[in-house]
Write a protein that binds this DNA or RNA. Structure first.
Lengths: 344, 344
DNA sequence: GGAAATTGCGCAAACGTTTGCTCAATAGAA
DNA sequence: TTCTATTGAGCAAACGTTTGCGCAATTTCC
């Protein structure tokens, strides 16, 4: 029923609890023989330290890293959340830290959930996704001196906290160059409502690559997809595809939107890539299954999540270390949704 | 830095810690005035109880529901894990319970992770996925009297614990009937290595539907996919599709496998559904994006997860309540991967 | 008006760990 | 042989909370 404690080991070996504790933690002056005996007995008795007790003496922290679950909108989450969480789990497990997920109760904000976590010290650190250009969560946690890592940057370039991000700037420039090289001149960018930082970077990367060409025949239309309303989203895409000066190439902020374009193009009997090239971002599972296969950038969510977990663990260990930043270059995955621009 | 404790309140009000504790918990004989004073002071001082201490005395539980992250194998997790976790999160949030995810450290078993969670009371209850016909986790938790809910059943029909499951038996029978009605006679079932209970039910549903027909022309081949080796998995599927008496209809244990069949059929230039009908199970995100769209059963992962969370909360509240069981009927989603059997 | 019951609250132990301090036993040095 | 280091290990306090028990003061009951 009640599990083995350090006391049981002590009794079995006729030692004191202190000695056992030290033998297990490797802190005091303990001869190797004793240490071995203790570790042996611990294994044999199936001893696992009681976290609560460790937390209480202040030795350990809660042993949790927190993640607040937010509704992504834009249709189903697809494989992204799963990849992300499994990556976090692996990165944290290596350090013996567990992951704790807080959902946002009805009527509360993400920030208030975060405040609560910090106040009750339920987690030793937080991982923040969906970072926006001006992010109150970042400001708050910075002010509290609470460890955290963001997946995505905030707008200010001054690095005051740890982040990991995917280089959407370079990627979207690369996508433009690829499509331009294939003869495309009429571009569209399908984007999102919220001012998340990746939107800024990806847009900027595309625009700057365009300007670099200095080709007056190149045009770009930026179309915003509604976040929750799937029907309106489909309509927005159809409007774009049916307009007079229909683009021949559509870049989407991420695969979910790109796949929606594929779907609508199919509905309108537009050939992809014959009439229309489509490129996404993230390489979610569905991107490979779609026909034509979606050309996209693999941002290796699992690895990035794992790495952010490791950053957080490091940060928790050493709160004074200088801010860490990591920009990951996504890999272009060439599938079948892009091709030469249609003649005419 | 260090937060307010019960002691601070006691000192401020010139009371003993016991009185304060009782006033806050409402346990002892405390006059309303005192209680009000204490609660007031607690609010003013920003008191939040130390969870670790509460856990240690065994009064309160951790306020967490635990989920052990397991590697699913069979290729990517796709949208399943994300849907599942977000469902759990919502179900738990309603009850103010947080979700805690434990990864399995290198070299450890899921069971040992579970033991540890139970022993240290890191969670008040557990949610178990991937239930197998004989499941040591279930036996262990039952013996410990630790609250848990399984998503999926164990083999024994006697209900000794709470579970929620999708009715694969009926679904696979339904799938057979659909395909039989379309003229199919040569069937294959693509299954998995491990003795998970859903494998049993789904196979049984298919087999019994077959036997019910009593048609001697009906044949069934059962082919097992390797769990981790994607290349061998592809080979196994190709072998099936290239064999002399190639099946005209393939049922897969779940969508991941069905999509693999679609992919290999494409590679072999077999037309789906012209030459081959394929039906999956779960309706993951990729199923809708695949071309042809995959006919499958929607098991509404999000809702099921949410419901299992609610069951767990109820179980934690009342450990004595009779076992709850819930069998969810999946919805057949007709897409384009099935059709009439090829002539001849 | 005295006994009994009730009320209000404090003492102290307990939960499992960690760790500063202490101390006996042994080893080494002079 | 005596003095000093070193080694091995135990004592006890501390972390913040809950709770059984006890006790004085007050109220209730006959």
């Amino acid at each position: 029923m009640s599990s083995t404690t350090i006391k049981d080991i002590a009794r079995a070996l006729d030692l004191s609890v202190s000695t056992v504790s030290r033998a297990l933690s490797g802190q005091g002056r303990i001869p190797d023989v004793t240490r071995a005996r203790v570790q042996d007995a611990a294994r044999k008795l199936g001893y696992t330290p009681n976290r609560a007790a460790q937390v209480l003496v202040g030795k350990r922290n809660s042993g949790f890293a927190g993640l607040v679950l937010t509704d992504p909108g834009y249709g189903r989450e697809d494989s992204y959340l799963g990849d992300y969480i499994s990556g976090l789990g692996h990165g944290l497990a290596e350090a013996g830290v567990d992951l704790f997920l807080a959902a946002i109760p009805e009527g509360q904000s993400e920030l208030s959930v975060i405040r609560n976590i910090v106040a009750t010290r339920r987690a030793d650190g937080l991982i923040l996704g969906r970072t926006s250009e001006v992010d109150p969560r970042v400001d708050y946690l910075l002010a509290e001196g609470f460890p955290f890592v963001t997946h995505g940057r905030v707008a200010t370039e001054v690095a005051r906290h740890d982040w990991i991000d995917t280089d959407g700037f370079t990627a979207f420039g690369q996508a433009f160059d690829l499509l331009y090289g294939l003869g495309h001149r009429r571009f569209a960018l399908l984007t999102i409502e919220e001012p998340m930082t990746f939107r800024l970077h990806r847009t900027e990367g595309l625009v700057q690559a365009m300007e670099r060409r200095g080709d007056p025949h190149v045009s770009l239309r930026i179309v915003t997809s509604p976040r929750y309303d799937a029907a309106r989203r489909a309509q927005v895409i159809r409007d774009l595809l049916q307009s007079d000066d229909r683009p021949t190439a559509v870049l989407a902020m991420f695969d979910g939107l790109a796949l929606a374009v594929l779907r609508e193009a199919e509905g309108l009997s537009l050939s992809v890539p014959g009439d229309l090239s489509v490129i996404g971002f993230d390489n979610i599972a569905s991107a490979a299954m779609a026909r034509p296969g979606l050309t996209t950038f693999d941002s290796d969510t699992h690895a990035a999540a794992r790495e952010s977990a490791q950053m957080l663990v490091a940060r928790i260990r050493d709160p004074q270390a200088p801010p860490m930043k990591r920009l990951v270059r996504p890999r272009l995955v060439l599938r079948a949704s892009h091709g030469a621009a249609p003649a005419r």
